[in-house]
Design a protein around this nucleic acid. Structure first.
Lengths: 339, 339
DNA sequence: AGGCGCTGTATTAACGCTCATACAACGTCA
DNA sequence: TGACGTTGTATGAGCGTTAATACAGCGCCT
């Protein structure tokens, strides 16, 4: 709104050269002799000239901006991801436009369209659901660089993600190895959501000859501590309550742990708890939490690298590649008291 | 890179109208008759036309984008702030360009310059330090809309923030009221940093006739749980150890709490702990934490509202206004065991 | 001496859009 | 009937930048 803006033209007028000469000089063209360049640079500095990236983008047809779409940044795992994505992109000269879909599909579509309109060079998307990817697949088909941060081998879209199914499998397998057979799960995988973790849970159980029990499952409807608390409450009120619980993330696990404290149960003696993501608070919880760990930075670095690769592709994009990072289980006291 | 882009011209060619007519029709000008508009809109939809915001911005001289500069988004309080800022801006039609300064002044300057170059309509900044604001003050003088997320009444820049000094004062006053006089502080206020909280701490002590004791202070050099743990370790190894500790944020407090667990001290009987920010984990910590609470959404909403107001200002910006939100203390078991 | 290739600079045309203006075609009214 | 609005559409300029091209002046070679 009426803020003064210094343009190439102003530097040109000041020095007596043409706009084009100034542009070349400031970009260090070898065709401009050193003394001319110095005079122009001095004038530009005096006037506090800053190149207008908007105009530049219009010409170059690239904005050096990528769009990051998350469902909700307050999820600690996503916060970490956002941080390291921004860092990785900044290192490569890209800026990050950031938006949250608030777990709403329409909002997700709106945000993606808005980013397209803003001519972002590519997008990193943590989609609301694995099921509704049509709009993203369509982007890809329109030759638009996109990398998902959840992995669906059949999505037809590039993706880099931790192998959630495998992580969940490892966690539940560990509980089984510790002698548990009544194992509950706290995971908000509604029919439309991502059920990788639930799949891993079921796999570990059936593999061990344990019939998955539908009543041992609670949907926390969110990822916050308090949600975990109430989901745990539901599970532990069962007549045949679980002796161990697997939760889809550490915030839920901390909520579950909190429930045990309030109800004077010992962890892991009375009930064992495993989380997912291994956030900092997991290690330092009242009872240090066993949790599925993976290097978020590895995931985001690979995702960013792939995205940059796609952006740099001339012509048609290569076939989508899906990369799964293998997570490890960090065993702590919440499942295994050291003697 | 060579992605096909549908322009007004394409829609014009398809319909036989001129570019201008198409532009007017799509923007719903009353000069375009209804049937023409419908034909144009249909063609635009068929071609999947999306307006190019970059070109639009070049003409309108506004990008409908604001720049958000944070030191480090993994600080839970800042995460929350980022989330609600993005939401508030999106509601008003603005996109959020986001960058972290990683607590480095040069990086902060670089990011701000980059945002200027990208023609953001305004910026929200959580600066690295209260001391080095010259570059931001200069922005303001150049008539650029900026709102700080920390309050310094003398900064000469608009700001909206929680009153940290007052929050710290309340926290420490509470400890004094509970009978403590040996009160430690864990706060990373280096000479160049923000020492509002430390000021509030000192004020409460001196007001109560207690001489602040320099040895009762630990610099955690960060805001993570583990930093709090080691800072607590330093304080509790003192010959004359504190009976209560005030920490600059809840992560540090949880670290301190963790130290007490490992060292078999009871909270609050052996040592009381107060945090700041009242994050979700504070309430659900092993011992629920007393913490300074304030509505982050209120702070960010006011900051966004002020920023939008500045952006809408014609001509010279009004005098800077500084708004401080008054925080409250939430008392929980970490300072006061209920009988 | 005339042509050639440098060197340094300017001119022009884009990029996709909006705004101001132009202007035909038509109807209206004195 | 002819000047005058109104309606619908087109033309041209301009936003700040880059890229392609033009071109004047000079030294050098044959």
């Amino acid at each position: 709104m009426g803020r003064p803006i210094v343009r190439l033209k102003d530097v040109a007028d000041r020095t007596g050269f043409s706009v084009n000469t100034v542009s070349l000089a400031l970009r260090g063209s070898p065709r401009i002799p050193e003394d001319t360049a110095i005079r122009i640079r001095d004038a530009a500095r005096d006037l506090n000239y800053m190149p207008n990236q908007v105009a530049k983008s219009l010409v170059s047809r690239e904005t050096k901006t990528i769009g990051l779409v998350l469902t909700d940044i307050t999820n600690p795992a996503l916060t970490q991801a956002a941080q390291s994505i921004e860092l990785a992109l900044a290192e490569r000269g890209y800026s990050t436009l950031f938006a949250t879909s608030n777990n709403d599909l329409e909002e997700e579509k709106r945000v993606i369209a808005m980013f397209q309109s803003r001519q972002v060079d590519g997008m990193l998307i943590y989609p609301r659901s694995h099921r509704d990817l049509a709009h993203i697949r369509q982007l890809r088909r329109a030759n638009y660089p996109v990398v998902l941060l959840v992995a669906d081998p059949d999505a037809g879209v590039d993706a880099v993600s931790v192998d959630e199914r495998r992580g969940a499998y490892r966690a539940v397998k560990h509980l089984i190895d510790m002698g548990h057979s009544r194992i509950g799960i706290i995971d908000s995988s509604n029919p439309m959501g991502n059920h990788e973790k639930r799949d891993g849970y079921v796999l570990a159980l059936t593999e061990a000859g344990i019939e998955p029990d539908g009543t041992m499952s609670a949907d926390p409807q969110g990822h916050s501590v308090i949600r975990g608390y109430w989901a745990m409450d539901k599970l532990m009120r069962l007549a045949n309550r679980p002796s161990a619980v697997f939760t889809a993330n550490d915030s839920l696990a901390i909520g579950a742990l909190r429930w045990t404290q309030k109800n004077d149960l010992r962890v892991p003696e009375d009930v064992a708890i495993v989380g997912f993501d291994n956030i900092e608070f997991a290690e330092h919880a009242a009872t240090p939490l066993t949790s599925v760990n993976y290097e978020i930075k590895l995931v985001t670095d690979l995702a960013v690298a792939r995205l940059i690769e796609l952006i740099g592709t001339q012509g048609t994009l290569p076939d989508p590649s899906v990369t799964l990072i293998d997570p490890e289980l960090i065993v702590r006291e919440s499942t295994h008291r050291r003697p």
